[in-house]
Design a protein around this nucleic acid. Structure first.
Lengths: 156, 156
DNA sequence: CTCGTTGCAAAGGATTTGCACAAGT
DNA sequence: ACTTGTGCAAATCCTTTGCAACGAG
């Protein structure tokens, strides 16, 4: 049953890399593991995580490597990224597609079932021939807590 | 009937500013006018527009003023902004709410009817107590043209 | 060995911020 | 006059790039 850590995760990675004549490096494996472990993490947070995993002595992948690797994993279809508001994009493992819901007030991120937008997606496909990419979608709005607290305002 | 240019637009602006003890400056009026004239413009584009309107001699609002003003107008509810992908946010007049659809490949922006997400919004409200802010929503995906051209890939 | 990769440091682009001066009300 | 707003320049933040050394296959 348990089936989504370290060793397991590296398998598809190795495969896809090989298929493109690319190399499986420890950095790439670590970045992918970090993305899977942290939900909705920004490149910055992922970097920090890798640094603490490595400890004050061990070496963690460089920031530029984290960026390059995230872009690569994205291209390989192993991770997805979403831009929630103005800041950095957040990455999550590609396994279970789901869409993101972000509170514009508190920044809280919630996930919703991927079929939430099925109807809308069909309509867009029919009307504009536009294919919605559920994994990349982010809906912004206000969560219950903030709604009760403030009621208005237009934050980022 | 005709009712969305210059003079007209400044009215609600003056009102809302006054209500908060703020001042109506020519810069603020110009920025708002630019947002209304340009659809889906980034702060950069808005700034450029103001600069060309002013001509090589006349003075256009400073970049920092453009940013500060856009934030203010947003807070006042006169304009909306949406983050489409990684780049800069795009602003549009608050008048007619509509949602944005962005092609991840070519960056093309299309608008869709605001009721497209009504069903989804209701479900989110019921399930999570989350209120979707249609004006800020951006759906990413692939437009027909790009879909026929490539078919896969995961761009930003 | 051979080329894809990484680490470092410097380059960049987009915002934001501190301040003294200008300007609405 | 009293404060808010603006322009300017410097400071930040997030990424991206150039390159020489490194290491996977």
């Amino acid at each position: 049953m348990g089936s989504e850590h370290g060793e397991d995760a590296a398998a598809p990675l190795a495969e896809r890399l090989r298929a493109r004549g690319l190399r499986l490096t420890p950095q790439r494996r670590r970045v992918l593991e970090a993305v899977m472990a942290l939900e909705h993490a920004t490149p910055e947070v992922i970097g920090a995580r890798l640094r603490e995993e490595a400890g004050p002595d061990g070496a963690a992948p460089d920031t530029s490597t984290v960026y390059r690797t995230l872009e690569l994993l994205d291209r390989l279809g192993l991770v997805w990224h979403t831009h929630l508001g103005k800041g950095a994009p957040v990455y999550h493992a590609a396994e279970h597609p789901h869409l993101h819901v972000v509170c514009a007030s508190c920044g809280e991120i919630a996930s919703a079932a991927p079929d939430l937008l099925d109807a809308a997606a069909e309509r867009l496909a029919a009307d504009l021939g536009f294919t919605v990419d559920v994994g990349h979608v982010a809906l912004s709005g206000t969560c219950r807590a903030c709604r009760e607290r403030t009621g208005s305002e237009h934050p980022s």
